[in-house]
Design a protein around this nucleic acid. Structure first.
Length: 269
DNA sequence: AACGAAACCTGCGCGC
DNA sequence: TGCGCGCAGGTTTCGT
């Protein structure tokens, strides 16, 4: 489900709904998601109160009194807030609150992760320590310096969260379209001006997507808070065979960096 | 050191 | 209808 705009939308919604709730119990139905000893995890978070909900790149950060829970939704992770309904087959972790509300983590493919970190200095600990800057915070010279010797296709570089965080398959395609750069172009062949334009385009794409509540494709069952409308604004992603909105040429789908990639070969070089 | 491929999982749509 | 394949908004680990 999530790239940065979807995670941000989820964060905002969760904050409205469960801030200041106190955890009374945790049900772990599929333990592999929790990257921590199961019993210790439970003992640590029970009786803790949710003080804030933050985000870094695609990670969502639940700040408790003495700990932080760092969650990554990977491909299909979603949250639901329920009360007493029976558990869905794909609800793997249930946080029960003293109020009777329940926060349920739902993940068909079970790729998601939860790390428990001490509150003190958690930003310097794995996994947050290896997350690169988001486009809005990324200095353009710094970005160019990081990519200008790389022999990877530019799309692979933009997907690399250590270098620049928040973009995923949808928003990389859209960013490359705005910057008029072909996803297969090797990073060292990107000029400084183009690199600057890439960072600018990424900011623009993410900002707009956040304003529209993210993108909803393929996930018909709505996740908490994500009623995205950015799918109506996509220029190329998912639009194979349709005309490029700029030049009218047919958009094609190719495979780059192992990912389905949509491109206008007239506009993007 | 750096790159691409495989692995982690499940479900859906397609062609035969 | 059933089966096998390819594909899916991500990241880490493995092998060259």
């Amino acid at each position: 489900m999530p790239e940065l705009p979807e995670v941000e939308t989820v964060r905002q919604t969760l904050k409205l709904k469960i801030l200041n709730q106190t955890i009374s119990d945790v049900i772990i139905r599929y333990p592999n998601i929790v990257k921590y000893d199961e019993l210790e995890f439970k003992n640590s978070v029970i009786n803790q109160t949710l003080e804030d909900i933050k985000r870094k790149g695609k990670y969502i950060i639940f700040v408790l009194d003495q700990f932080v829970m760092v969650m990554h939704l990977r491909m299909e992770g979603k949250f639901f807030i329920k009360t007493t309904e029976p558990y869905d087959k794909h609800e793997h972790i249930i946080f029960k609150f003293k109020s009777g509300l329940e926060l349920r983590y739902h993940d068909v493919r079970k790729f998601g992760t939860i790390h428990l970190l001490p509150k003190d200095g958690y930003e310097q600990l794995y996994p947050l320590s290896v997350v690169g800057k988001e486009p809005k915070d990324l200095d353009q010279n710094e970005f160019y310096k990081k990519i200008h010797l790389s022999k990877r296709p530019i799309k692979a570089v933009l997907l690399d969260q250590h270098i620049i965080s928040g973009l995923g398959n949808i928003y990389v395609d859209e960013t490359l379209f705005l910057a008029k750069i072909h996803p297969e172009r090797l990073a060292y062949k990107i000029t400084k001006n183009e690199a600057d334009l890439l960072v600018e385009s990424a900011k623009q794409v993410l900002d707009k997507a956040i304003k529209l509540g993210g993108t909803t494709i393929r996930s018909y069952t709505s996740s908490l808070g994500v009623h995205g409308r950015f799918q109506n604004e996509l220029n190329v992603h998912t639009r194979q065979g349709l005309p490029c909105p700029v030049c009218g040429m047919k958009i094609i789908k190719i495979r780059v960096a192992g990912r389905g990639s949509y491109v206008c070969t007239r506009c993007q070089n």
